[in-house]
C-alpha cells in the first residue's frame, strides 16, 4: 500500500521543471479525453491510449506515467481478474483501458498544469475567485493527501500497527487518514482566511500566455478527433468491435 501511495504522489505531482502548458488547454484536452473515454467503442480506447502515451513520451513525463502504472498495477490485476471471471474479455479490456487512459491522462495533466495558474486562468474568464480556486485546491490536495496518507501509513507501519490480515488494520489506517484530511482541510480554511482570499479582486503577479507548445498540443488532439471521425465513418476498426 505504501508503494502505491508513494507512486500516486509521484505520478500526480506538478513538476515545475517540465514543459508548461496553458491550464485552459490542459482542461480542454482532459475534457476531450474524458468525453471519448465514456464512448463504448473498443478501438477508441486503444487510440486514446496511444495518443496519451505519445504525449507522455514526447513531453517527457515518462517517470510520472510509470509511477502511475506501478500504482495501478494491483488494481489492474484485481479488477482484471474479477471482470474476466464474471464478464469476459471484452468487459475486462474496457475496464483496464479506461483505468490506464484515466491514470496516464491525469498524470500528464497534473504534471504540466500549475494549479495556481488554473485559478488565474479561470479568474481571467471572470469566474469568481472562490469558485475558480476549487479545482486548483483539488489539484493541489490530491498529491498532498497521497503524501499524508503515505506518511501516516509509514508511521503506523513503524509503530507495528500494520500486521496480520489487511481487514484488521485497514479500518484503523483509514480512520487516521480521514482524521488527517479533516485536520488539513480545517487548517487550509484558516490559511485562506488570514491570507485574505476573497477580500477583493485579485491581481496576478505574472501573465499566462498561449505558446506554440499549446497550439502543438491542440493540433495533436485535433488530429485525434479527425482520426476518430475518419475511422468511425469508414468503420476501419470493425474487427476490434
Amino acid at each position: 500500500m505504501s508503494f502505491m501511495l508513494k507512486r500516486i504522489y509521484d505520478g500526480f505531482l506538478y513538476k515545475p521543471d517540465k514543459l508548461q502548458i496553458h491550464p485552459l488547454v490542459g482542461i480542454v484536452i482532459i475534457s476531450i479525453q474524458f468525453g471519448f473515454l465514456i464512448l463504448n467503442k473498443n478501438w477508441v480506447l486503444a487510440l486514446l491510449l496511444i495518443f496519451i502515451i505519445f504525449e507522455n513520451v514526447i513531453f517527457k513525463n515518462i517517470r510520472g506515467s510509470l509511477s502511475i502504472l506501478w500504482a495501478l498495477l494491483p488494481i489492474l490485476i484485481f479488477l482484471g481478474g474479477l471482470t474476466y471471471l464474471f464478464g469476459g474479455w471484452e468487459i475486462t479490456y474496457r475496464v483496464l483501458m479506461r483505468l490506464l487512459v484515466g491514470g496516464l491522462g491525469f498524470s500528464f495533466f497534473f504534471s504540466i498544469v500549475n494549479p495556481s495558474d488554473l485559478t488565474r486562468s479561470f479568474e481571467k474568464l471572470k469566474i469568481p475567485t472562490k469558485i475558480a480556486l476549487i479545482p486548483s485546491l483539488a489539484l493541489m490536495m490530491i498529491p498532498r493527501i497521497a503524501k499524508d496518507a503515505e506518511d501516516t501509513f509509514t508511521t503506523l507501519k513503524i509503530r507495528g500497527e500494520i500486521k496480520g490480515f489487511f481487514l484488521r488494520w485497514l479500518p484503523r489506517v483509514f480512520a487516521v487518514f480521514i482524521a488527517s484530511i479533516i485536520y488539513r482541510s480545517e487548517f487550509l480554511a484558516q490559511s485562506l482566511y488570514f491570507k485574505g482570499l476573497g477580500i477583493q479582486r485579485r491581481t496576478h503577479y505574472r501573465k499566462i500566455s498561449f505558446r506554440w507548445v499549446d497550439l502543438f498540443r491542440l493540433l495533436i488532439w485535433t488530429c485525434f478527433i479527425i482520426s476518430f471521425i475518419f475511422i468511425d465513418k469508414y468503420d476501419l476498426f470493425y474487427f476490434f468491435n
Binding site: L13, Y14, P16, N114, P115, S116, M140, F187, L188, S191
Partner: peptide, 8 residues
C-alpha cells in the same frame, strides 16, 4: 506545513 495554499 498545515497551512500551505499552493504547490510552488
Amino acid at each position: 506545513s498545515d497551512f500551505t495554499t499552493s504547490l510552488l
